[in-house]
Amino acid sequence: MSPPPQRPDRSRNDARPRSRSTRRPGAPKPDTSTPREGAPEGDRIAKLLARAGVASRRESERMIAEGRVKLGEELVTTPATILKDLRGVTVDGKPVRAPEATRLFAFHKPQGLLTAERDPAGRPTIYTALKNALPAGAPRLMPVGRLDLNTEGLLLLTNDGEFKRQLELPATKIPRTYRARAFGNVTQGQLEELIEGVEIDGMRYGRIDANMERRTGRNLWIEMTITEGKNREIRRVLEYLDLQVSRLIRIGYGPFALDELPRGAAVEINAKQLERFRASLGTKGRKPS
């Protein structure tokens, strides 16, 4: 997979209330490098399930709420349950396996597929297509972010819930590049103003690198790169410019490009390329257990 073309830059936790500190002025700060005495050791079960590739943290929390997760014979009733490991944990009656090495796949999502595991209305999801697209022996995979029903193009999939979360965080500032076919009138100057971001109906969208790729009358092809990936961001910004979007394709996510990957096909990212990417983010992938 080759990186998408680069363009010149044209730009210019915890919410709980905290107790008031009683530390005297000038006194040394308390040592917070080690756990407090009596504090439970381990991690939340939802985090462990995500790390093991069972599901994302949010999906793991939903599974727990639905009564699908047990520790031994007891139902797990809260995602805040602290465990050192997942020994004895089952999901839908099946033991949770030890985490596998981090893997990453690129999938060319067609239009008309939901980026979801299941749909109450019975509409086809990406997993319908992935049954035939993935190689034999592929692990359970989770999508990195989402493409809406009518958006097509590059969708990354990983078996590592923590890696997925990192790739989705706006703070990571991983670029996502799209090509949009639209109808209407807009100038390159108007598109370049998006480099400063824009506020629409009280929602602030950050830096957007937008370029007119081709124009035939009022029919346009526009290429746009964003780093936040908010819900329907590209469509909302183009509609704000009075453009009617008829087709939207994601062609790049970080260093990974759609290239000539056929629609509905999936390919695994080379392990060395994956590790280089993770090194650029300052993280390391899981190793085989």
Rank of each mutant, 00 (worst) to 15 (best):
P262E: 11
A271I: 05
D209Q: 11
E192S: 14
R263N: 03
M203D: 12
I200F: 04
L274I: 07
E239T: 08
R218I: 13
E275H: 09
T216M: 13
E228A: 13
E268L: 06
G217L: 09
A266S: 13
I249C: 03
G202C: 09
S246L: 06
L281S: 10
R214A: 15
R236H: 06
R215N: 07
M203F: 04
E239A: 15
E275N: 13
L258T: 11
Y240S: 15
L274W: 08
N270V: 05
N219Q: 12
I269D: 05
I208C: 15
E223P: 01
T216G: 10
I195P: 00
V237E: 01
V267H: 00
V267R: 04
A265L: 02
I222E: 00
E228Y: 03
I208R: 02
I222W: 01
K284F: 07
D209M: 07
F256E: 03
L258N: 04
I234H: 02
F256K: 03
V245I: 13
N211P: 01
M224L: 14
L248R: 04
E223Y: 01
I222P: 00
E275G: 07
E223Q: 15
L248K: 02
I195R: 12
A265P: 01
R278D: 06
Y240A: 10
R276E: 12
I222M: 03
E196Q: 13
T227R: 15
R218F: 11
K272H: 12
T216P: 00
I208N: 09
K284H: 13
R204P: 02
E199D: 12
R250S: 07
V237D: 01
E213Y: 04
T283R: 12
D201Q: 13
K287L: 13
T283E: 12
G217K: 09
E260C: 05
Y253W: 09
D209C: 11
L258A: 08
N270Q: 09
V267I: 10
K272S: 14
E223A: 11
R250Q: 09
G197K: 06
R204N: 09
E196R: 13
V198W: 03
W221P: 00
A257Q: 05
V267E: 05
N270K: 06
E233G: 05
L238Y: 01
G202P: 02
E223G: 10
E228R: 09
A257P: 00
Q244W: 04
N219H: 15
R247K: 14
L248I: 08
L241V: 11
E239H: 12
A266M: 04
P255I: 10
F256Q: 04
E239G: 10
W221L: 15
T283D: 04
